[in-house]
Design a protein around this nucleic acid. Structure first.
Lengths: 151, 151
DNA sequence: CTCAATCCCAACCGATTGAGTTGGGATTGA
DNA sequence: TCAATCCCAACTCAATCGGTTGGGATTGAG
């Protein structure tokens, strides 16, 4: 998807390209590709020189939409699903006071996801740092400095 | 846990009681019980008339603590774990711009969980409210005769 | 017209995970 | 002593998820 975002405006990208770029098996991407298509997020053109293409500019695609398409309704637990249709299969729900918790968690997640668009994940190109194998290294203290950024 | 919350201040509750109250297998609760104990959330007393007991009043126990004890570090994806020690096993992390997303989701969840204490889940007994009538559910149609046996 | 490139789609596989089970202690109050 | 209780590790079992297989259908280019 990010690849598609980067590619946006340049015509369809073939799965083969994307597979190469992301180092993922093409066949696997196919599956994802068509749930995304069914969800109306991407358009496909068949035949030689076909491929996939975003149907909207990346900044108009909230991540929540993508995630819901790919992973189904957001639901930290079955008893707190997003999707009205199978509202509760839990059975226990009535007596389960914990439900409230999950609902809040779900809403928090939904909020985070709604507040973020695909555009934000398309890297400004050039900030692709090559990975260094110094894995276990230098910044042990590292308590997420990212905290402040939640708008 | 909620059971323990409700029981708080009345001495230890045996797993047998809890198992009965929650309709869960006792042996299973045992497992949970002692990860909670190891986490310092509950205290146990052995022997006849023993049982478990909260070590702090419910309103001093954030749900985040319970969840982390039971389920491990919060991490919607491996690449966005809470726990510094296995910071990234993802390998892809460097090139993976999506990481940012997961981090935000994780923080959202953490926020929701931190902002909620066990006390809030211990029902005041008697107020088992039937679920909110809510906005967009005009059609409870057919399905699931499951529950409705509220209280 | 033919053929390679591409999307389309369903069924399958295998490792991981999580809920739950089994079984055998160790402690302690009555 | 004995029953009630906690302690603990190893196990089973089913669902899920990342990924694979294997076959089409469509289309542009030569």
């Amino acid at each position: 998807m990010v690849q598609l975002g980067r590619h946006y405006g340049r015509g369809p990208a073939s799965l083969a390209e994307i597979a190469a770029a992301e180092d993922l098996p093409r066949a696997y991407l196919e599956q994802l590709a068509f749930v995304l298509r069914d969800a109306g997020l991407v358009a496909s053109t068949r035949g030689a020189h076909g491929g996939y293409e975003l149907r909207r500019p990346p900044q108009d695609i909230p991540m929540s939409e993508i995630l819901r398409a790919l992973e189904g309704p957001l639901a930290p637990m079955i008893c707190a699903t997003d999707a009205p249709e199978h509202a509760d299969l839990c059975g226990r729900t009535a007596s389960c006071t914990v439900n409230l918790l999950w609902v809040r968690v779900r809403d928090a997640v939904a909020g985070a996801l709604d507040g973020m668009t695909l555009a934000e994940l398309v890297p400004p190109r050039s900030m692709l740092v090559p990975l260094e194998p110094s894995a276990a290294a230098p910044e042990p203290t590292s308590n997420q400095p990212l905290e402040g950024a939640l708008t």
